[in-house]
Simulated assay, not measured.
Amino acid sequence: MKILDRLSVCMLAAALVAPAVRGEQHTWRSATESELAQALPARAPVEHERIETEMRTASGIVDEQGHVTAGVVLITAGYSADGKYSHYLIVAAPLRVGGLLLPPGKYVLGWKRSAEGLDVHLYDAASGQQKGSALARLLPAGTRVEPFRISPPGEHGIVQIGRFGIPYTLVP
């Protein structure tokens, strides 16, 4: 019996240590309103302008060390964004959004409707240089419509724009 007890303790210890040995990512959860308010600007620096954000649409995720990946709708009326940008995004950890790799940084995104869903284009916020694009597909019926939402990676990792979503994964 003592051998079985020791073996059980060793197996439990190995199971607890294994994620650290493999270098797995931190646990992410939905960000609180106060975490979003601290991470996201009231006026987003986009190219040469500071565009007002709609903080009630803010959504994001945070890990246990306080790293926040979040986004918010931009109020672009009257700015030179001219429909090119609709959302501001801060990325704290590398993400693969659709097929596009986004390193940590600040981005803006815009979209156009297509037959397959939404063609989402991502740009560097400071320079306006396009980083790439991804396709947001229609989410299943019954999914709550959100102006913008980033769900934690444990909940199927989706960046949601309205009724459309793009899967994402954290990149180690």
Score class of each variant (00 low, 15 high):
Gln65Cys: 06
Ala58Ile: 07
Val21Ala: 15
Ser80Pro: 01
Tyr79Gly: 11
Arg43Asp: 14
Thr57Trp: 08
Glu54Ile: 09
Ile90Leu: 12
Gly117Ile: 00
Ser127Tyr: 13
Ile3Tyr: 13
Asp119Trp: 12
Gly71Asn: 02
Leu74Asp: 05
Gly128Asp: 14
Leu12Asp: 05
Asp5Tyr: 09
Pro45Asp: 02
Pro147Lys: 10
Leu74Ala: 09
Tyr79Asn: 14
His48Met: 14
Arg113Gly: 07
His26Cys: 09
Ala134Thr: 01
Arg137His: 09
Lys84Pro: 02
Cys10Lys: 06
His156Trp: 10
Ile158Tyr: 02
Val72Phe: 03
Pro103His: 09
Lys106Val: 12
Ser30Glu: 13
Ile51Gln: 04
Gly23Ala: 12
Leu89His: 07
Gln160Lys: 13
Gln160Ala: 15
Ile166Glu: 06
Met55Val: 03
Val72Ala: 03
Gln129Leu: 10
Val171Thr: 10
Val72Ser: 04
Leu4Arg: 15
Asp63Glu: 03
Ala92Ser: 15
Gly117Gln: 04
Thr169Arg: 14
Val97Cys: 10
Thr27Cys: 08
Ala44Glu: 04
Asp5Ala: 12
Ala136Ser: 08
Leu16Trp: 15
Gln65Met: 03
Ala126Val: 00
Ile150Leu: 15
Leu74Phe: 00
Ser127Leu: 08
Ile90Glu: 11
Ile166Met: 13
Gly157Ser: 13
Ala15Cys: 14
Gly78Pro: 02
Gln130Arg: 15
Lys112Asp: 01
Pro140Trp: 05
Val21Cys: 11
His48Leu: 14
Ser30Tyr: 12
Val46Gln: 07
His26Pro: 02
Ser127Met: 09
Arg22Asp: 09
Gly154Cys: 00
Leu40Gly: 01
Trp111Leu: 09
Ile150Phe: 01
Arg50Asn: 14
Pro153Met: 03
Ala93Gly: 02
Lys112His: 14
Tyr85Val: 01
Gly105Leu: 07
Gln130His: 13
Gly132Ser: 08
Pro41Ser: 03
Thr69Trp: 01
Val72Leu: 02
Val21His: 06
Ser59Cys: 05
Leu36Tyr: 01
Thr27Gln: 08
Ala126His: 05
Lys84Met: 10
Glu155Phe: 01
Arg6Glu: 07
His87Ala: 00
Thr143Gly: 05
Gly105Asn: 11
Arg29Thr: 09
Arg56Ala: 14
Glu24Cys: 00
Tyr79Val: 06
Arg149Ile: 00
Phe164Arg: 01
Ile75Thr: 09
Pro19Tyr: 14
Ala141Ser: 11
Gly128Ser: 12
Gly132Met: 07
Ala37Ser: 10
Leu101Trp: 05
Val97Phe: 00
His121Arg: 15
Glu33Asp: 14
Gln38Ser: 15
Leu89Val: 06
His67Cys: 04
Pro104Leu: 07
Arg149Met: 07
Asp82Arg: 15
Ala115Ser: 11
Leu122Asn: 06
Ala134Glu: 01
Leu100Val: 12
Ile3Asp: 05
Ile51Asp: 04
Thr32Phe: 07
Ala70Arg: 06
Ala18Arg: 06
Gly117Asn: 06
Ile90Lys: 10
Thr143Val: 04
Pro152Asn: 01
Val72Glu: 01
